[in-house]
Design a protein around this nucleic acid. Structure first.
Lengths: 339, 339
DNA sequence: CTGAAAGCGCTTACAG
DNA sequence: CTGAAAGCGCTTACAG
């Protein structure tokens, strides 16, 4: 039984001790005689007393809240990250305050201020593109933060990500080694900020290294949604024929497969389609999607752990790049099999 | 600029007024002379003062926190519900405290207690099956709550859901009207509790009403995951042949389509597969999935609104059943087309 | 319109 | 080992 109406005073009175003593047994902060302790414990059990975290937070200057600000919880990529974050936060006695911004700057700043107001001890922050308003905010905020997929030279905030340059390089090399020549890419330049620039750079350089020429007609932007992948793929394929198409997120890649199929392409016989992220649906799609696996759960978990370390006053790494992995499935194929 | 180190005292000193006056202009709670108000506003702007919500919450007995306890944020069904909840909570000045239980009772009770400790003003609660431990907890808790997909006769807690009996009836009638005779069902008896019982009852009665006999070999349990749908479908189809298969959630239905395809069935030519929930992926799967649409976003939004109404002391409905809708797509087909 | 004081429910030096 | 007191940062009667 619990009863939040009961205060430390009630417990003290019932146990016949002072509130100081009650506090000491609750927190095990100073020695208390066995007898007094027992009486306090009994009183707590009988009354259903629970310490008020608001009051405790006020004096301790600790809310045990970690904020999580992300674009969209309904996107499985973010959902997996949140899951990892929640698990670790919980493990260390923190609670996750979830904020969905839909990538709107106003909402982001509003939520950032909210974190300050709520005295959040820490923050995991994700957004599409780090803007000057974000940087300004973080410059004079003192909240312990970890970014995911965001990097700023001006800010001394650690970040967790994968090595996007290498990941895209591997993806393109893989497609090239499968015999593809005309390789298109749909990427989201306003998502993940300079990580996407890295991805574009990796794409260009991988082509170059294999003597393939860059054709801007087969590279286009696309948002982080099934719909966008669907629409943009139709646009691209209406314009030019490609052997293979890399999407920089799986959600869009699923839209792309639908689009290609509707346009009469067989995947992978007529066109190889490759994603990025490896969300859980990708393995079950038909055809199952070749993708670059991002350790999303771990990214959320590690970022949260870094926040907690900072709260504890520990030193943390400036940047952690978690391992990615190319997962080969049915949506891509070797050209030699492809008469 | 914001600075959480600044307190109301600092602002008062700078503005040359008492903290009472500062409080009054912040909250617009009592008349303050224009001149004093201006000085306070200036001081706030200059210092970057933000009221400490912990302190305010302590005296007002209001945390502006709404808890959201769900099984699994990584499941898109729950993610969509959370999205609706977050939107409404935010709109009314509340913040969502997200808790992932994986359906474990211990975690659920732990989180429930946490909500009390944090002085959460309200709570949206979901779990597979309402157990006596839950009921006991809610019986002597005073937190304003709304259930989603849960019903208890013993508790006076409102709930939001859809009419599951009618939804399944429509689904089965639809399959029967398409000419299917042997219709299997995979349902999750430990999820959504008596809602699933309703679904089973609807299934049986719909068959009966059309003179079809109930065959327990083609009805089985399955969990709320892709993997489970995949495994259970293989089991079922290895045992018996069916014309059509209804899964009571889309995630499992996607696993089922994969399983059926791997076993050499063409969907829908050899077997119609139908889901339930209509998550966003279902429209893009190949073949796209016929399903019963649940208004998940609205369910989260309405449940949260009901919590907020209760906090405001308003009367709320005991039960709100939101409209569902059968969405016909490619994974089901009329038998007549099916030579 | 304004301020001093009490109080929200805790923790923690301080003195014993 | 124990308690009275001060204080965390606010709000709000109360008195003027």
């Amino acid at each position: 039984m619990i009863n939040i109406k009961i205060t430390i005073k009630d417990v003290a009175k019932r146990a016949g001790v002072s509130i100081s003593t009650v506090s000491r047994v609750i927190n095990d902060s100073k020695p208390v005689s066995d007898e007094a302790k027992q009486r306090v414990l009994d009183a707590i059990k009988e009354t259903g007393y629970r310490p008020n975290q608001l009051a405790r937070g006020l004096v301790l200057r600790k809310s045990n809240i970690i904020g999580m600000i992300i674009p969209d919880i309904a996107n499985p990529y973010y959902a997996a990250i949140v899951e990892g974050a929640e698990e670790i936060a919980n493990m260390y006695g923190y609670t996750l305050l979830l904020c969905n911004t839909h990538g709107e700057l106003d909402k982001e700043i509003e939520y950032l201020n909210l974190m300050a107001d709520k005295q959040a001890d820490g923050l995991v922050f994700m957004t599409g593109k780090l803007k000057s308003e974000h940087v300004d905010w973080f410059k004079n905020a003192e909240i312990k933060t970890c970014f995911i997929n965001l990097y700023s030279r001006e800010l001394d905030i650690p970040m967790v990500s994968i090595d996007n340059y290498n990941a895209v390089t591997e993806a393109i090399n893989y497609l090239i080694s499968n015999g593809h020549v005309k390789i298109g890419m749909l990427y989201a330049p306003d998502v993940d900020d300079l990580l996407q620039e890295e991805r574009l750079r990796a794409y260009k350089e991988a082509l170059k290294n294999h003597g393939h020429e860059f054709d801007e007609d087969v590279v286009s932007e696309c948002r982080f949604s099934i719909e966008s992948g669907y629409v943009k793929t139709k646009e691209l394929l209406n314009n030019k024929k490609v052997d293979a198409l890399l999407l920089t997120n799986d959600v869009a890649a699923i839209g792309a497969m639908k689009a290609a199929t509707e346009m009469g392409y067989r995947v992978p016989e007529d066109i190889s389609i490759m994603g990025f992220d490896d969300i859980s649906f990708s393995a079950y799609y038909q055809p199952s999607l070749t993708s670059i696996n991002q350790p999303t759960y771990d990214m959320g978990a590690v970022a949260t752990r870094m926040v907690i370390k900072q709260i504890a006053g520990e030193q943390v790494e400036k940047m952690i790049l978690l391992p990615h992995k190319l997962v080969e499935r049915e949506s891509t194929v070797k050209m030699s099999n492809n008469i």
